[in-house]
């Protein structure tokens, strides 16, 4: 579904990603772990189409709705969303003046139009929204509020998962959705994600803490250090990291240099 080949990227001349290779198949859950500054969020933002990063080398292929591989960098952020990529933001943006419900309805209809599906009307949308809110035990009053405006940290993260559930992506990228969540909120968010796991949907779960992976069991775990994936493995790698931390990689990275 997604194939990242030798991706180099940076910002203002400083290289952040230094050759990332990663293949994600439909139905798979991949965890990308790494310390601060390793390039995790950069990777997430680049996949979603944030244009402040400069791609210096490499390629990302994404299989489109027709099943053909497409150069992801040829697509605008909204085109990627309509093709089925969703990014749950590390820091969801507050947008006063834009309603959480109506904006999401407009987004869903833009995606449906692209897929050749009929628009949903207000009543159908509300029904769908109510159903999906239950996944993340979100308070219905948050539907009436402006996007993320005045939401607590936990409410913002749940709102991201709620958006994801409504928009029904094929590839969901969760950028540190667990950061700053207490255990209860984390469980709720994780169970929302687990409910959405399916053979047609892939997840790229980016996290700083191993804790999340107790609740969302990944098929693959990758360790990102200084802009490169230094180790990949199965779920056992996460457990291993929980015990040893990132320090061992720091040493190996230093030795390698």
């Amino acid at each position: 579904m997604l194939e990242i080949k030798n991706l180099h990227a940076g910002i203002d001349g400083a290289e952040i990603l230094k050759g990332v290779d990663l293949k994600v198949g439909a139905g798979e859950v991949h965890a990308v772990m790494g310390p601060n500054g390793s390039g995790k969020s950069t990777l997430a933002q680049i996949l979603a189409g944030r244009d402040e990063y400069e791609i210096t080398e490499g390629q990302v292929l994404f299989s489109n709705l027709q099943g053909a591989d497409e150069d992801l960098f040829e697509l605008e952020p909204e085109e990627r969303a309509r093709e089925g990529i969703f990014l749950a933001f590390q820091y969801p943006v507050e947008i006063p003046g834009v309603s959480n419900t109506y904006f999401l309805k407009a987004a869903l209809n833009a995606i449906r139009e692209h897929r050749g599906e009929p628009e949903v009307d207000a009543i159908e949308f509300l029904k769908l929204a109510r159903e999906k809110m239950k996944l993340v035990e979100m308070d219905e009053k948050l539907l009436q509020r402006p996007v993320n405006h005045g939401f607590s940290g936990g409410e913002k993260k749940r709102n991201e998962i709620f958006h994801m559930a409504v928009l029904d992506p094929r590839l969901a990228i969760l950028d540190e959705t667990d950061s700053g969540l207490d255990i209860d909120a984390l469980r709720i968010v994780a169970s929302g994600v687990n409910t959405m796991r399916s053979e047609n949907r892939a997840f790229l779960v980016i996290t700083h803490y191993q804790r999340l992976l107790r609740y969302i069991e990944p098929d693959f775990v990758h360790v990102l250090m200084d802009g490169r994936i230094v180790q990949s493995g199965g779920p056992e790698l996460a457990r291993q990291l929980e015990e040893s931390g990132y320090a061992t990689y720091d040493e190996s990275a230093t030795e390698a240099a």
Binding site: P77, A81, R82, P92, A107
Partner: peptide, 11 residues
């Protein structure tokens, strides 16, 4: 905010 909205599918 612009990127956030676009990343949800809004042109």
């Amino acid at each position: 905010a612009l990127f956030y909205l676009r990343s949800r599918g809004i042109g």
